[in-house]
Design a binder for these strands. Structure first.
Length: 795
RNA sequence: GCCGAAGUGGCGGAAUUGGCAGACGCGCUAGCUUCAGGAGCUAGUGAGAGCAAUCUCGUCGGGGUUCAAAUCCCCGCUUCGGCACCA
């Protein structure tokens, strides 16, 4: 079914408000959310897959009688829009508006329904006013703070780059060497929620295990201790973090990160300070790329003139600076145990440092550090303990003397939200020379993003060049003040949008608590796995924060998550820069939306990546034509045939189960099988014909709506009908096919009545001529699995 | 390097969780139908042997558990994702 007829039904669904539930008084709510897109270009097949999955589920839930809420909006701020605008010299607001118009039209043509009356756009003042409000709440609770941090800066593009835009230390676009710049920036203290974000993953049984694992790794909890190493003949000390206190006796040197602050502090005591300085400078030049990635050779330099004392045995050990020690993690210093850490081992080998074995393991490899647990040796009174006890005892011993402290460390870092960019939510902060940092009062929100800005990159935040925007009055002392020129990371926009959908135009609040408590958490969230970490972690963080503020009454935003696979072309993810993007619209024009929708769903299970192939679409189109022909032309009769009814109910059962499990591909093949059978019946009863249409409706909405109303003569939408449910009574089969095996090999089949007595079955099987010829030896054993298998085991 | 997932016909993929391997579809082959077809219908389609009925082999490779393994266990290989000097 094509063109005009599909459009007719799309209009019809809009007219009857199929996707516009009564948000105030839902009876059985179901919140189905699909990740909102970036309106940077037209939607391609990959997007379509996402929205088709959601729409099919949504229509199924509507037919099950849920008050279904499935809204859509636009994640409209951000880099791609700004870059596109710079390239084409159009204002981002303009290009965004154009793209939204185009994408909305696409979604409509695909028959994807949304509660369009609740549409949101994160770049509109009525939305970002509340993103700013959210920032202020975080600021009030001390969760938003400012500190110096490095950014990647491309001197040729004159712009700040995101980490993803830095490829091997070079700018992704112009290949210039990326520089590091230190800037004052805003951070959100997500690390304060690290433990809860980790623990509460267990509240999410309906999230993919894969995603939860990725989040766990990202949070990266590790349990250990801070151990203090005094410097000999000095009052100073160096602290290290370790998870392996059991190996403390094997520590033969300390290693500091080149950025460690104690190095300049101890300048006077360091005898070889000039060489040390030179080494640090060299390391810095080797830039992040070379140092961070890859298993580069570990290099370092010994600090002469100061030595550290191992607190557990008072042994004096040398202090080194080593490029494999990171300032960003732990204390920026480590206790090196070459015998039991591969990195320390390699370093010790290179510089001829002693290697002292203190753990006896089961399988020790030569020429490698033994990193496993084992039994402590060469550890004085701790020798003989196992690693686990050793860690506990050694830390306890040091703790008594104030030389150690138990410590849990997370790899998770605070969330840097400042962007030196134009196209984002302005950070609602004012800098006053008298009052310092002053948040914009809530009544003054939104801080409007000015339209007239030269957003071409010139090395600083574009807003800085707009005097009208920058110059303001301090809300506290009313003297002239400056605005914050940076905008927020767009991940903030998307960390709370699911709350805004319920009241997108409310001018008094970000969201209405009663309604949000009623509708959230989202019942089903659907999106790409590329958001497994950042977006989902940030949303969880913000939800927990709002819960702590008592603004909502749930702690997790998304009860079920479904991450669909990518659609790839020529083995690569579709992207404009690679030039391998496929748009579905020409196919829809040729075959109709229903055929394209079903083809995408039929191609593979939705969580799998698929290589795009439009060839099979002909088959789907044929199938839909056969459905149409069957429904429109078959002769009707009163009575229902038993076999027809049984097969129909078996199909109903399977389709329901498959949809619930997102097995859309097998649901479709089950319907195809049923249709193949029904096509051979000379005539059918009315209920079977209607069942086919109802079963298929979520998959092929246009065709089924048309058949339901125009052919079967109903006056109400097919989506106002209940989805078919199977009646167990009609599933019963009185005859069962039993598989007969001899020595585990298939040798025959036999049809018997269900739940036949074993003795009788045995008799039938052994007397069957096709089986007899295989029994050439005495029977050792006879295994009967009721209603399934008989296996004859010969001796 | 570490963690995770996967490996089934020419292709996409099924297999009630240990019980007929290859459902459904694409593609291909033959026939019918049509003025014609890039339309429709019918039949066939894992490999090998045979006129046939039928038999043998077969789910990445190797071993094992079991009456019975694509499915469970061990070893190895390959591919794809995530993390990557995290102390």
């Amino acid at each position: 079914m094509l063109g005009k007829r599909e459009k007719y039904w799309q209009d019809y669904w809009e007219k009857i408000g199929l996707f516009e539930p009564d948000l105030k008084h839902p009876k059985r709510k179901y919140y189905c959310l699909m990740m909102f897109p970036y309106p940077s270009a037209a939607l391609h097949i990959g997007h379509m897959r996402n929205y088709i999955l959601g729409d099919t589920l949504a229509r199924y839930k509507i037919m099950q009688g849920f008050d279904l809420f499935t809204p859509m909006g636009w994640d409209a701020f951000g880099l791609p829009a700004e870059n596109a605008a710079i390239k084409n010299n159009i204002h981002p607001a303009q290009s965004i508006a154009n793209n939204i118009r185009r994408m909305k039209k696409q979604l409509r043509n695909w028959g994807v329904g949304y509660a369009w009356s609740k549409e949101i756009n994160s770049s509109s003042p009525e939305y970002y006013k509340w993103t700013q409000w959210l920032f202020l709440q975080l600021y009030k609770k001390g969760l938003a703070y400012r500190k110096k941090a490095k950014v990647n800066f491309c001197p040729s593009c004159q712009t700040v780059l995101a980490n993803e835009q830095v490829v091997e230390g070079k700018c992704e676009r112009c290949s210039a060497e990326v520089e590091q710049k230190e800037l004052e920036q805003w951070f959100l203290r997500i690390t304060a929620y690290a433990q809860r974000l980790l623990d509460d993953l267990s509240l999410l049984p309906h999230w993919p295990e894969r995603v939860k694992t990725m989040q766990r790794n990202w949070i990266g909890r590790s349990e250990g201790a801070i151990i203090r190493f005094p410097l000999s003949n000095l009052s100073n000390y160096i602290e290290v973090f370790t998870t392996r206190a059991d190996t403390l006796f094997g520590c033969t040197y300390l290693a500091l990160s080149p950025e460690h602050p104690i190095i300049p502090e101890m300048k006077a005591n360091i005898k070889n300070f000039t060489q040390v300085e030179k080494y640090i400078e060299q390391t810095r030049k080797r830039s992040l790329s070379a140092r961070d990635n890859l298993n580069k050779e570990k290099k370092g330099i010994e600090i002469k003139g100061i030595r550290a004392i191992n607190p557990v045995n008072n042994q004096e050990i040398p202090i080194w600076i080593a490029d494999y020690v990171l300032m960003e993690y732990g204390s920026g210093a480590i206790m090196a145990v070459p015998a039991h850490d591969q990195r320390d081992y390699e370093f010790a080998q290179r510089y001829n440092l002693p290697i002292k074995e203190v753990i006896k393991g089961e399988s020790q490899e030569k020429g490698k550090a033994y990193e496993g647990d084992g039994v402590l040796i060469n550890s004085e009174r701790f020798s003989g303990l196992n690693s686990k006890e050793g860690r506990k005892e050694i830390i306890a011993y040091l703790e008594k003397n104030g030389q150690a402290k138990r410590k849990v460390l997370y790899r998770l870092r605070d969330w840097l939200i400042s962007r030196q960019r134009y196209w984002g939510t302005p950070i609602p902060i004012i800098y006053c020379s008298k009052c310092g940092i002053v948040p914009v009062p809530e009544k003054d929100l939104p801080v409007l993003l000015p339209q007239n800005v030269d957003f071409k990159p010139k090395g600083e935040s574009p807003l800085k060049r707009n005097k009208e925007f920058m110059h303001t009055i301090c809300p506290q002392c009313h003297s002239p003040a400056q605005r914050e020129a940076d905008t927020m990371d767009t991940f903030i926009d998307s960390s709370w949008y699911y709350l805004r959908y319920l009241s997108p135009h409310n001018q008094k609040q970000a969201f209405e608590k009663e309604m949000v408590d009623q509708w959230l958490p989202v019942d089903q969230y659907i999106g790409g796995v590329e958001h497994a970490i950042l977006h989902l972690l940030y949303s969880r963080f913000i939800t927990k924060f709002l819960y702590d503020c008592k603004l909502i009454n749930f702690q997790e935003p998304f009860s079920s998550l479904f991450t669909q696979g990518m659609v790839v072309k020529d083995g690569l993810k579709m992207s404009k820069s690679k030039g391998n993007v496929v748009y579905p619209d020409p196919l829809i024009e040729k075959y109709g939306a229903d055929a394209v929708r079903m083809h995408i769903l039929f191609l593979a299970p939705p969580e799998k990546d698929i290589e795009w192939d439009s060839r099979g679409i002909e088959g789907m189109s044929r199938f839909l034509k056969r459905v149409e022909r069957l429904i429109s032309t078959c002769t009707q009769k009163e009575e229902i045939e038993e076999e027809v009814r049984r097969r129909t109910h078996q199909t109903i059962k399977k389709v329901n189960k498959d949809i619930e499990n997102f097995h859309f591909n097998t649901a479709i093949s089950a319907i195809m099988e049923l249709l193949n059978y029904l096509l051979h019946c000379s005539s059918l009863d009315k209920s079977t014909i209607e069942t086919i249409v109802l079963l298929l409706a979520p998959f092929a909405p246009h065709l089924c709506e048309e058949l339901w109303q125009k052919v079967l003569g109903h006056t109400e939408s097919v989506f106002k009908q209940s989805y078919p449910t199977s009646n167990p009574q009609f599933l019963q089969e009185e005859k069962i096919l039993i598989i007969i095996q001899v020595n585990g090999k298939l040798r025959g089949k036999i049809e018997v009545e269900k739940d036949i007595e074993e003795e009788r079955l045995k008799e039938l099987v052994l007397s069957s001529p096709q089986i007899k010829k295989w029994i050439n030896k005495p029977i050792k054993k006879l295994i009967i699995v009721p209603n399934r298998v008989v296996n004859i085991v010969l001796s």
